[in-house]
Structures are given as structure tokens and as C-alpha cells.
Simulated scan of single mutants.
Amino acid sequence: MQTQRPISAITEEARYFEVPDAHLYTVLHKPTNPVARALLVGPFASERVSSYYPWVRWARYLAERQVEVLRYDYRGIGESTGVFEEMSFDKWSEDLQLLLNWFMSRTPKLPLLLHGLELGAILAGRNFHEGAGDALLMWSPPATANEALRSTLLQWAGFKQMLDSPENRTPASEYIKQLQQGALMDVQGYQWPGKLWCDSVGFELPSALSDEARAKSIYKRPVKNTKLGKDASPLVKPFRGYVEVKDFSELYSENFDWVSGALALATGEMNEAINREP
């Protein structure tokens, strides 16, 4: 088996990108001679922490293979500014569009991959549906944002029940009821507003994107929809309360092969360098 060898030195530029009433924390992974670009849209709120290490490693993996990568924290999450309880899916969608406009304006003009993880896959998919990007890669996209929020809530409620005495345990259904009634609820360090929960039900992945063959015929651009298994934890849920360091090189390699084909990159000097023996 040949060892894949990075073919480009990279630099990483952290900056704050201005959006209405806030600044997004972004990191640009820059290879010396990029042949494509990828905008990475990560998972929701508290999942940022658990998925951080493999997500950053994936960005660097792409950059080492001459794909310029932009990753960021949602407004109100992580290192970005903004008040989380004032956020909405529309605001997060608008922020992504602003980032896309800036990223696509860079020179030279290069093919662009949109890549989303869990809730980020819905955001990326909706922008792709509107015409952005030359290819779309989704990891474990839920059908609706509510599925992503619900799985986080159920896991959080389960942990709380383990810590509480039997007489003080609150079922997840009660928390859901409170959110539906408009309550503000602290879930894993983020203040969830009831409106965000209610709005999540109608914030959907475009139906055509759930089937790769159908998506290809409709959009005339490559789409990959991959459901990651439990072995992909902590990149995706469920995780067990700690962040386990894993080797995701096989996942990265398989997906990079698809990206190369989707963006017509796996030819010429790039392909030869990737497969060159060290």
C-alpha cells in the first residue's frame, strides 16, 4: 500500500469576518498552489467541541493536497461573537452566504466544494440548492434541523438523568414541552430559545439531496451523501462524554478520492504527487 504524502506546504490564517452585528471566527488553510477550494460548515453548538480535532485534521488533510479550505464557527458559537439565544437558522444561512461570496471572490477562480457535517450539511445543502458550489459533500445530514437539535437534547437529558436522583429526574419529553412553549433552556452551555426549537422543524434539507442519483440528475453537479456510523464518534454523535483521539485517515482518504473526481482534480502532477512513495 502506498503512503499518501502531503504535496503542498500550508499556512493557516485565523481572522474575524464581519457579518451584521457580529464577527465570525474563521481559519483559512492556504496551500502554496491551490487547485480547488472547500468551505467547511460544521455541526451544531456543543458538537463543535467533540468534533473539533477530526474536523481540523480533515481541513489540514485537504489543504496538504492543494485544496484551500475555509472553516468557521457559527455566529454565537465557539470563538465567534454574537448572542446564541438571539440566533436563527436564517441568520446562520445569511452568514454562510456572506462567507461564500468572499471565498468565491478570491483569485484565481477555482472549483468550489461545499462540505457540511450534520446540521452544517443542511446549511451547505440549502446553499448548494440555490446554486452555490461545484460539488456538495454531506456527512450525516439530518432531514430537518430539529433532528439535529433533538439528538443533542436527548443525549443531554440522558446525562442529567444519570446524575440526578430518581425522584428528581426529568424526562426528555418535559424539556421538549418547555421548548415548544417558548422556554429558554440551558443545554450543554448554550441557552436554547424555544423559537429556535420550533423553527428547526421547518428548516429542512432539500428533498432532492437525500438521494444521490436524483440529486445528480436535478443539479447536474456532483453530490455525495454519507451516513457516518457510530465508529465515526466523536466526529458525529453519539459520543460518550469524552473526546477520543481516533485515526480517521481511511475516512479522509475515501472522501478525498471522491472530491478529486467530483472537482476533476485527480489527474496530472497532483495525482502523481499524492501517490508518490515517500
Rank of each mutant, 00 (worst) to 15 (best):
M1Q: 12
Q4E: 13
Q4M: 13
P6G: 03
P6A: 06
T11F: 02
Y16F: 04
A22K: 01
T26C: 14
T26H: 05
T32L: 15
N33P: 00
A38F: 07
S46D: 10
E47K: 14
R48H: 13
Y52K: 15
W58D: 15
Y61H: 12
Y61N: 00
L70D: 15
R71C: 00
I77F: 00
G82Q: 01
V83D: 12
F89K: 02
K91T: 08
L100Y: 06
M104A: 15
P108Y: 09
G116E: 06
G120C: 14
L123M: 11
L123P: 00
R126C: 01
N127C: 14
G133S: 03
D134M: 07
P141H: 06
P141L: 04
P142K: 10
P142A: 10
A148E: 00
R150I: 12
S151R: 15
A157P: 09
Q161I: 03
D164I: 12
E167C: 02
P171G: 00
A172W: 08
K177L: 09
K177C: 00
Q180F: 03
V187I: 07
Q188F: 06
G189D: 02
S207W: 04
A215F: 00
K220Q: 14
K227V: 13
L235P: 11
V236D: 04
R240Y: 15
Y242K: 11
V243M: 02
E244I: 03
V245S: 14
V245G: 13
F248V: 10
S249E: 05
E254I: 00
E254G: 05
F256E: 10
W258L: 08
A262D: 04
L265Y: 05
A266K: 09
M270C: 09
A273R: 07
E277A: 14
